[in-house]
Design a protein around this nucleic acid. Sequence first.
DNA 1: CAGTGGTCTAGACCACCAG
DNA 2: TGGTGGTCTAGACCACTGG
Lengths: 240, 240
Amino acid sequence: MQTKYEKIASTIRERIKNGTYPVDSLLPNQTDLVLEFGVSRMTIKKAIEILMMEGLVYSQRGMGTKILDHSFWDKDVSPIKEYDGLSYQMEKQNKKLESSVIKFDVGFPNKEIQKKLLLKAEQPIYQIIRLRILEGKPFVIEHTIMPCDLVPNLTTDILEKSVYTYLKKGLGLQFGGAYRTFQADRAEEHDKKYLECDDSDPILEVQQVIYLKDGTPIEFSKSRNRYDTRSYSILDVDYS
Amino acid sequence: MQTKYEKIASTIRERIKNGTYPVDSLLPNQTDLVLEFGVSRMTIKKAIEILMMEGLVYSQRGMGTKILDHSFWDKDVSPIKEYDGLSYQMEKQNKKLESSVIKFDVGFPNKEIQKKLLLKAEQPIYQIIRLRILEGKPFVIEHTIMPCDLVPNLTTDILEKSVYTYLKKGLGLQFGGAYRTFQADRAEEHDKKYLECDDSDPILEVQQVIYLKDGTPIEFSKSRNRYDTRSYSILDVDYS
DNA sequence: CAGTGGTCTAGACCACCAG
DNA sequence: TGGTGGTCTAGACCACTGG
């Protein structure tokens, strides 16, 4: 939290959550907020914009800024906009996550991976398969591919803890975005073996390419969940 | 296209797509763009912000604004940020979409629906089930619930064409956002009957609540696809 | 260090919605 | 019509990157 508008957004967010600004009422108008916070209106507007992207309020010309009912997705349904990785996400919820490394290899990328990670055929990659175990129960199988040169000195130890922490804290990398697809699939061998499911259990698969701030792709991964253990959620706001 | 920054964003977007600004090169710096377009820098910045949200460029302090490789998701993988409905989406791609109405009823909302659409128990709702048929093949089953008072005079005829067109053009409603969840599921009776699949075929289910601009929920729906007919994709950019 | 984009200001005008 | 938020300006200072 550094900039003025971020601080103001936090303050207002707090007031919404604790009921100072009740659901369905209007926020004080922007000129009043200018007076209260002693900043320019552009700054106030930017703060409100953040809250709008979070789905907490909705502004409309001529009408004001309304506090929306957020209780809906306020619970454990965390949006997917997190590049903290599972470990961190679960830690926040005080849930115990273990990772068991099923495969940890080095190899060369096939055509598909070359295209997705913008690699040449001779650039080596890590090929990783991990089983993530939540509260003692098999939760998800993650197939991960990363270019070796971007992620030096990867070890089994890191894989068993948190790769993201290593990338962020250890290597100082900054994530900039992700491209994801969702599909359903039949269970395959690995799924049946490690997720304790059978042929008829559907699998929810999420594929993602993760990008660094400068646009370099750093990871391609497939996460396969048993159909009854997880769903993903998205809040989509039209800012136009 | 109304505001200056939207026009400028379109111009720059066009230059990126036709190669005037090649992938991996840098955009002219913001002060140069100020001179070219004869606007203030804040306006240029806002234009670039739009392109950043679209994943076309990435800006960084001290470095400039880099054109990213967008060829990846430039094709038919349209982001889900469209409230045009399936009909319109398919029309753009010149694909033929038919809709067959399986159920069209009125009733009262159960507890779950009351909560999701913010309704009282005695507010009537439409209960609709439609089979959407793409290019002659069963594509998706949509279960839709809408409050009657917000959508007057709904007819079978409208359901067979495009509900969204009716809401937008006919009723003048404006969409503001959506909340979606994705999960996999086993095939149930309707799926087997209409999607021509059997017990072992997984289903991809997308649930969504759609909101109007002022935050009023107007629709809850479940879309059930055969696992091999559809996937959804999202581009997720970190703007911090 | 020079050059970049990010933030911020103190105004202004306009488009929209309500009464 | 009065009040709202959306846009836009012409500056300024700062934080960050690269050489």
